[in-house]
Design a protein around this nucleic acid. Structure first.
Length: 669
DNA sequence: CAAACCCCGGCTTT
DNA sequence: AAAGCCGGGGTTTGTA
């Protein structure tokens, strides 16, 4: 692994640790991704970060302690841990906890006690099964793991062989202990394919226990990481049938999530999910291969009931455990809502309670959330919105979250509530949301509906699916909701543009947005008298924005979208590319000819006309001006153009605007 | 709108 | 396990 990776991981981890203290409540940010990071990085660190031994260990155990209180019934449920293992792992756990708290105490109270504690700990360790070997292996490992300077390869091989010789017979004892499990991790990391294969085989029959062990899980994840397709299959096969139980397990759930997200193939994922349907589908898995949920449910209402019950069982257990952010869970939820009836949907909404925000960052999770919003009753929608509004900014900017917000905008009848909920959170950030690739979408929706320009066919079809689903519970005519929202949001759009025009105009997406706002009859018609006046001020502001010497490279005209914006304002209408004609505005004032006139006066006049024509970036502006003004019989520009006609640069190949202008002038004459 | 373009994830290769 | 290729998507751009 490259040092860069190590560094990155270390950093990530450090950040994460800081978080765990203060930000329990602020875990809106993708929990699922952190799950994999957490496991990967905290175990990586052992090997890669030089100074990390104590830090890593301590923090890990701190996490451990944190979680202990959350302990649930599942440990008992987990089949009494295989008689032989039970005693061992039980005492092991205890010792580790003691160990960590001892260590901490010692750290505070003085070195003398510390040493004593250490000795005690060591003695206890020696008494454990394979204790002597463990100590020996560990000392070898200490030499193996050093990374600064890195151990030369031959030495590494030798050490690693020695470790393997010592550990291969008691490997299953090693992997459950927090220190020794690291030895095996390092071993796996520095081993050949064959050796890894051997480790995989030596651990056969242990993977369930491994997955549920707070230390073993790191090794398991490592094995998955370095493993081949086959070895992954071995592990998956073995865990297969226990997934539902694992999902309810504190450690196991993380392993399953990692497996699902990072290592399982599409087919394996499908299989994992099918296991959540019920025991039948886990046991006879080959018989049920290629089975889709819809098929099964259609074939028998009884089966459907059972599957529903099983799914919601796993889902609510995991949600209660705080695993709402897991992707595998989102996928399971996705299946559930696909077959759920209205009653089940209501129950599901209750299960999720205030955790909706944890769903919206993954494709599946967002889909679930959208479906729920679409199918929910007015009252249920209100609770969902109430929950989501606290995460408005993250929700709206997120690639998937934004569709959830759009769905809410499309489906919720109570637009007053929508505006009250989200308005305040949005108000001060609209200038940055509006230039965000995803964040701007909901606001373009309010402005234009599901315009194909901003909603790709895939997204659009999906959103239309939700519209269809919402028809049972939404009462207003579809377009009415958008109009009402536009009415409420329009003043906010306007004041944001007025205040932050320079920030927004700096971005391509921002120019595009402003153009959509200004060249829009519906928008203008929603404005009151006072806002209509402000609208004119905004237009003047934009005109003034283009003042200045365009031979200066920093002039805004040299940014690609500026011309497009100006052109749309000068034309005063939307270009319909299908019909190849301009659709003039019916009610907006101050654009089109008016705008052109002002622009050819305040910004361009006979003194700098030639500059604007002979520059590639700006020439099309003049073309637009010419078309707009000459059509209206405005002679000033035509006259000025004649004066400079001879100096227009028609030679350079790339100034197509200039040449087009000349062509148009000749046609006229 | 359509063509050009770029970026990313998955796959194959050594 | 890293490097390179390919295809599909989304975005940019060209200018009607």
């Amino acid at each position: 692994m490259a040092p860069i990776t190590a560094k990155k991981n270390g950093k990530k981890h450090a950040l994460k640790l800081k978080d765990t203290k203060g930000a329990k409540k602020a875990k809106v940010e993708v929990k699922s991704s952190s799950s994999s990071d957490e496991i990967a990085s905290s175990s990586d660190e052992d090997d890669d970060v030089e100074s990390g031994v104590l830090d890593g260990e301590e923090s890990e155990e701190e996490d451990e302690l944190d979680e202990v209180s959350e302990e649930d019934e599942l440990d008992q449920e987990s089949d009494e841990e295989q008689a032989e293992q039970k005693e061992e792992s039980g005492s092991d756990d205890n010792e580790n906890e003691e160990g960590s708290s001892d260590e901490k105490k010692a750290g505070k109270e003085g070195p003398g006690q510390h040493a004593e504690q250490r000795k005690l700990l060591k003695e206890r360790k020696m008494q454990r099964k394979s204790g002597a070997e463990v100590q020996q292996i560990k000392s070898l490992w200490e030499r193996l793991r050093v990374n600064n300077p890195p151990v030369p390869k031959p030495v590494r091989e030798k050490l690693s062989n020695e470790v393997w010789e010592l550990s291969k017979d008691c490997i299953s004892d090693l992997v459950m202990k927090h220190d020794a499990s690291r030895v095996v991790q390092t071993l796996v990391k520095y081993s050949s394919k064959e050796r890894r294969e051997q480790v995989i085989n030596a651990l056969k029959g242990k993977y369930y226990v491994l997955a549920t062990s707070s230390y073993g899980k790191y090794l398991l994840v490592k094995l998955l990481h370095y493993g081949t397709k086959q070895s992954r299959q071995v592990i998956i096969d073995e865990l297969h049938g226990s997934l539902r139980k694992l999902m309810r397990h504190r450690e196991g759930a993380y392993v399953v999530e990692d497996l699902y997200v990072l290592y399982a193939s599409q087919e394996q994922r499908q299989q994992m999910l099918r296991e959540f349907w019920g025991a039948e589908y886990a046991v006879f898995r080959d018989a049920h291969k290629d089975l889709t949920l819809e098929q099964v449910c259609e074939s028998s209402a009884e089966k459907k009931n059972i599957i529903c019950k099983n799914l919601i069982g796993t889902i609510s257990a995991s949600v209660d455990k705080g695993s709402t952010g897991f992707q595998i869970l989102h996928a399971a939820m996705g299946e559930y809502v696909k077959i759920a009836g209205d009653k089940e949907i209501s129950e599901f909404i209750e299960v999720l309670e205030d955790k909706f925000a944890e769903l919206v960052h993954t494709p599946e999770g967002a889909e679930v959330c959208c479906t729920l919003i679409a199918r929910a009753t007015a009252k249920e929608r209100k609770t969902i919105i109430k929950n989501l509004k606290d995460h408005a900014d993250n929700l709206i900017r997120n690639e998937h979250g934004n569709t959830v917000f759009v769905t809410a905008l499309m489906c919720v009848d109570d637009t007053v509530m929508m505006f009250k909920s989200f308005g305040p959170a949005i108000k001060d950030r609209l200038q940055s949301i509006v230039v965000d690739k995803f964040g701007r979408r909901p606001f373009l929706y309010i402005l234009l509906g599901l315009d194909g320009k901003y909603f790709s066919p895939v997204v659009k079809t999906e959103l239309q699916k939700y519209i269809k689903l919402s028809e049972n519970t939404s009462k207003k005519p579809f377009e009415q909701r958008r109009k009402e929202l536009l009415n409420k949001f329009a003043p906010m759009y306007l004041s944001t543009i007025a205040k932050y025009y320079d920030l927004i105009l700096e971005e391509n997406l921002g120019c595009q947005f402003i153009s959509e706002v200004l060249v829009n009859d519906e928008f203008y018609e929603q404005l009151g008298e006072q806002d209509k006046a402000r609208f004119q001020e905004v237009i003047d502001t934009i005109i003034a924005y283009f003042k200045g010497d365009i031979t200066d490279e920093k002039h805004p005209i040299h940014r690609p979208y500026s011309v497009r914006l100006l052109k749309s304002l000068i034309q005063g209408g939307k270009w319909n590319a299908k019909e190849k004609k301009l659709e003039p505005l019916r009610s907006v004032q101050g654009l089109g000819h008016d705008f052109a006139q002002k622009f050819y006066e305040d910004i361009i006049d006979e003194t700098n006309l030639l500059d604007w024509i002979n520059n590639v970036d700006s020439s099309f502006t003049v073309v637009a001006l010419y078309e707009s003004l000459s059509k209206a019989g405005d002679k000033k520009l035509t006259k000025d153009l004649k004066k400079v006609a001879k100096k227009i640069d028609q030679e350079s190949n790339n100034n197509k605007g200039a040449r087009l202008l000349v062509k148009l002038m000749n046609e006229k004459a």
